[in-house]
Amino acid sequence: MQNLASPTMRRLTVFALCAFLALCLAGCATDEPVAQAQPQTLEIGENAGDVYSVALSNSSGKSVVSMSVKLPGDESFSANLMSSDAHLKDGEDAIVYVPKQATEDGTYIIDLKVVFGDGGVSVLHHLDLEEFSAATLLLNGKIGYVTYQGKSANRMISTLDLQTYYYNLEDPTAAARDKAEEEEEKRRLEKLEEDLKATEEQQAADATTSSDGTKTATEENAQTKVTTNDTQGMDIEDDPIEVNQDEDLSDD
C-alpha cells in the first residue's frame, strides 16, 4: 500500500503546486498596471533635410485641416503640408516641419496659411522661425495669430497686432465691413427689443380696453334697470292716456 500510495501522493502534490503557481502568476498579472496607449503627436510637413521643427499647440477653438507656407522668395503658398485625412483638433499639439530657406538678409521669415474645418482661412504673416521653436495658434474673430516665448526679447510675444495690421492692409474694407456687421447685428437686436416692447404695450392696452368695455356695459345695464324700475313705479292715475279716457266717458 505504501508503494502504491507514494506515487499518487507525489502526483497530487505536484498538481497542487502547479495550481498554486498558476494562481500566483495570475495575481501578479492582475496587479500590474495596464499600459494605456498615448495619443501620437501629429506631424505636419516632411522631416527631411534642413528643416525647422516647431511644436504648435492649437488653441484656436477650431480644427485645422490644412497648412501651407510661403517661403522667402516664393510667389505662392506651398501645397498642403497636412495629409488629406489629417485634422489638428482644438486642444491638440503637432510638430510642424518647415524647410529652412533664408532671405537675402539672412533671416528666416515665412507666411503661414491655415485653413479651418469650417472653411475659414487665416494667413499669419512675417513669422520669424529663428525666434521660437514652440508656439500657440489662436484666433481673434477672423484674425489668426500665434504667441510664443521670444528668444531675443526673453518674454512672451503675441503677433495679434501684427496680424491685425496685415489683415486690414490686405483688405482695406475688412475693418469697415466687420464694423458694419457689428452695427447691423446691434440694430437687429434693438429692433427685436422694440418689437417686444410694442407687443407688451399693445397687450396691456387691449387688456385695459377690454376692462373699460366691461365696465361701460355694466354701467349701461345698471342705468337701464334704474329707468325700468322708475317706469314701473309710476302712479296709474297720472297716466295721461288713462285720464283722457275718463274724460271722454264723462262727456258721453
Score class of each variant (00 low, 15 high):
Tyr148Leu: 00
Gln149Glu: 05
Gly150Pro: 00
Gly150Thr: 00
Lys151Ala: 02
Lys151Cys: 02
Ser152Ile: 09
Ala153Phe: 03
Asn154Lys: 10
Asn154Gln: 14
Met156Asn: 05
Ile157His: 03
Ser158Asp: 01
Ser158Arg: 04
Thr159Ala: 02
Leu160Tyr: 04
Asp161Met: 10
Asp161Lys: 13
Leu162Tyr: 03
Leu162Ala: 06
Leu162Ile: 06
Tyr165Leu: 10
Tyr165Trp: 15
Tyr166Ala: 00
Tyr166Cys: 02
Tyr166Gln: 01
Asn168Ser: 07
Leu169Val: 13
Leu169Asn: 08
Glu170Val: 11
Pro172Glu: 11
Thr173Phe: 02
Ala174Arg: 03
Ala175Ser: 12
Ala176Met: 01
Ala176Gln: 08
Arg177Leu: 06
Asp178Cys: 05
Lys179Asp: 13
Lys179Leu: 14
Ala180Arg: 04
Ala180Gln: 10
Glu181Thr: 12
Glu182Ile: 00
Glu182Ala: 11
Glu184His: 14
Glu184Thr: 08
Glu184Ala: 07
Lys186Gln: 13
Arg187Gln: 12
Arg187Tyr: 15
Arg187Met: 08
Leu189Thr: 07
Leu189Ser: 08
Glu190Cys: 05
Lys191Pro: 03
Leu192Gln: 15
Leu192Asn: 10
Glu193Tyr: 11
Asp195Trp: 13
Asp195Met: 13
Asp195Val: 09
Asp195Glu: 13
Asp195Asn: 12
Leu196Ser: 12
Lys197Ile: 04
Thr199Ser: 11
Thr199Glu: 10
Glu201Phe: 08
Glu201Gln: 14
Gln202Glu: 14
Gln202Met: 13
Gln202Phe: 08
Gln203Val: 14
Gln203Gly: 03
Ala205Gln: 05
Ala205Asp: 07
Asp206Gly: 07
Asp206Ser: 10
